[in-house]
Design a binder for these strands. Structure first.
Lengths: 222, 222
DNA sequence: GTCTATAACCTGATAGAC
DNA sequence: GTCTATCAGGTTATAGAC
């Protein structure tokens, strides 16, 4: 697990770190509702009252965890998309790779985000605003919009770019249990299937962003 | 709600029908874990023990509900995709419309399916098999594969077609709370946004399925 | 068939000893 | 700081009266 240790929680205390780690794992795996404080305590190797000493309520604990998780995601895109000297197919390809490496470590992360958005979208949005991640997100948006204004991209509303990119990126992970059960070839692993998916994903994003002639040209490079 | 009344549950008893309806609504809205038997009883206008008379356990009740829901979905595609005289763009467009009309009635249906697949994929898969929906699904698959064999479509593995189609179709609904909060234009409704999304969705599916030249030709018709 | 009453359990949370 | 003991509240489920 250990999504990345760029977190701002006081890891000075080893018990606290153990708790956060256990909570992070269980919340992602089973969601807020189906994770009990007892589960977390058991996994962290302590007992319930000790949990409540560190994080007074279940809700406060969840907030401590969600910050860590969200902050691990947006920076991944940020660096890659803003490298303007690279051809677009390579840049988007790089973004996919960055997300893939995260998702292979934590396959249920997309599911977690979607589930908790559904449970309490305002909470997640306000967390993102508090962490000033919306500033970075705005930079990403500007970067794409610039390419649209100079005519290299179709003028696609940015929200539809997000729907496309994230939809195509995370759908195999949202359906992973079904895919693992009935859609893998003999001996194929889920990770191998994800790698085969990548060119199709890229193809469709380019079909959205590029004018027809440019799209056909770019197909050679995939 | 009333997803469609092609269900096989004994609706002879009006109380039982009321219960199913209430349970269907709440399970879809909040999911299995966060829906209590008391909630269902309250919404159906009876009390808890009466619930347990009709459906001995919460689990049995959920199974009764899931059958109704799943059976409302696959037939929608089935009829449309097999009309071979229609041009492909129109057929897929029709499928999108069919799903849209379902999702506008029940916007949290995709979320529900994804959430419960994650909770217990085997249960959902075995339900589908029990209902013989896999036979209809196989027909849909054959229909697509036929067009690939005769060279009208690219030879895209069928699982990737599903990832594309359902990913692009349901992502706006999975993100609906975020979209409603920060991605709508002034005065725009979520339904209007969905309609604007449709041509982009279609464009990307065609980019996947059609050879480059055919794709460029088809773009005129969108 | 539908209700009242109640069992048995698990949840999050707190008080207080060490 | 971390434990034991305990609380109040909500959960599914059942037994038995009507």
């Amino acid at each position: 697990m250990s999504i990345q240790d760029n977190n701002k929680t006081d890891n000075h205390n080893p018990t606290e770190a153990k708790i956060i780690e256990a909570a992070k794992y269980l919340f992602i795996q089973k969601g807020y509702a189906e994770t009990s404080m007892s589960d977390i305590a058991a996994r962290a190797g302590i007992n319930r009252p000790a949990l409540h000493y560190y994080f007074r309520t279940k809700d406060k604990m969840f907030h401590a965890v969600i910050g860590d998780i969200v902050s691990a995601i947006i920076p991944k895109v940020y660096k890659l998309l803003t490298k303007k000297e690279m051809p677009i197919a390579n840049r988007i390809g790089g973004m996919i790779d960055a997300y893939y490496s995260l998702f292979i470590q934590i396959p249920r992360l997309p599911m977690f985000i979607i589930r908790e958005i559904n449970r309490d979208a305002d909470m997640l949005i306000s967390t993102i605003i508090q962490m000033h991640l919306n500033v970075k997100a705005q930079n990403v948006i500007n970067c794409i919009q610039e390419e649209m204004n100079c005519g290299k991209f179709n003028k696609v509303p940015i929200r539809f770019f997000f729907c496309s990119f994230y939809g195509l990126l995370v759908t195999p992970l949202l359906m992973q249990d079904v895919i693992r059960a009935v859609m893998l070839e003999d001996g194929e692993t889920f990770e191998q299937m994800l790698q085969k998916w990548k060119p199709y994903l890229l193809r469709q994003i380019l079909a959205l962003l590029l004018p027809p002639q440019e799209f056909v040209k770019a197909l050679g490079g995939i």
